[in-house]
Simulated scan of single mutants.
Amino acid sequence: MAKIKPLMLLPPVLFVGLAALFYFGNTREDRNTLPSAREGQVAPAVVLTQLGDDAPFSDATLRDGEVKLLNYWASWCAPCRAEHPLLEELQAEGIPIYGVNYRDDPGRAMAFLDELGNPFTAMGADGAGRMALDWGLYGVPETYVIAGDGTVMLRFAGPLTEAVMENRIRPAMAEAAAR
């Protein structure tokens, strides 16, 4: 009878271990959500430079008593381009959206908006990404629901879709309005 060497068992054991890890990792309920240390807290400071002709929004804007969205975006971001028509639909509904252009060339950012339209009530640039660090930005696009008192109600990392709007963003906006 042939003797089994311990190293011969290593590949099948590793395979079974990795298969179990992948299976249990993909069956978790919250696998598409990222935790946010900011939810339930007052929004961090707004530190933006001007982008375009208008002055950027400020901290006071986020605490003006109105529920709003804050959207991080960039011209080089393909998912930002994909979610853009939905942002324009939300703007047409009267939902205030404040844009933060993240680590982008100002000329390219303005060309992006010239091409696709500007859905933002006000916007500014975070060229160095310092504000994004304070907000806990994971990547662009990223959208925050902000209550009228400036509390972050929800952070959604990734491009907005109709399903995300109906299942995550609109319920968070309703919760923010009820505060």
Rank of each mutant, 00 (worst) to 15 (best):
R155C: 10
T161D: 08
D114K: 11
L34H: 15
I4L: 15
F15G: 07
A128V: 03
L48R: 05
A55G: 03
M110C: 00
G99Q: 11
F112Y: 10
W73I: 00
Y138F: 07
A78R: 11
D64K: 11
F156D: 03
A19F: 10
L21A: 14
V152R: 06
A147V: 07
H84G: 11
I146M: 11
G148L: 14
W76P: 00
W76M: 00
D126L: 10
G117F: 01
I4A: 13
G17V: 06
A111Q: 15
L137G: 10
F156C: 06
G65T: 10
G65F: 12
L48V: 09
D149S: 08
K3W: 13
G148S: 01
V140S: 14
A125Y: 02
E162S: 08
M153E: 06
K3D: 09
N118T: 04
V140T: 14
L14E: 12
A92V: 00
R28T: 15
M123P: 01
V145S: 07
M123R: 11
A177D: 04
H84M: 04
F57H: 04
P12L: 12
F156S: 10
L87Q: 05
L90E: 10
N167H: 12
N101I: 07
A19M: 08
G150C: 02
A109D: 02
N71R: 07
A78W: 03
T143H: 00
A147K: 05
T151M: 03
A19H: 11
L70A: 09
L90C: 04
M131I: 03
N101R: 02
P12S: 07
I97Y: 05
P35I: 11
G99R: 13
R31W: 02
M153D: 06
V140D: 14
A128S: 14
T143M: 01
P159T: 12
N26G: 13
R170N: 09
F15V: 14
A178R: 06
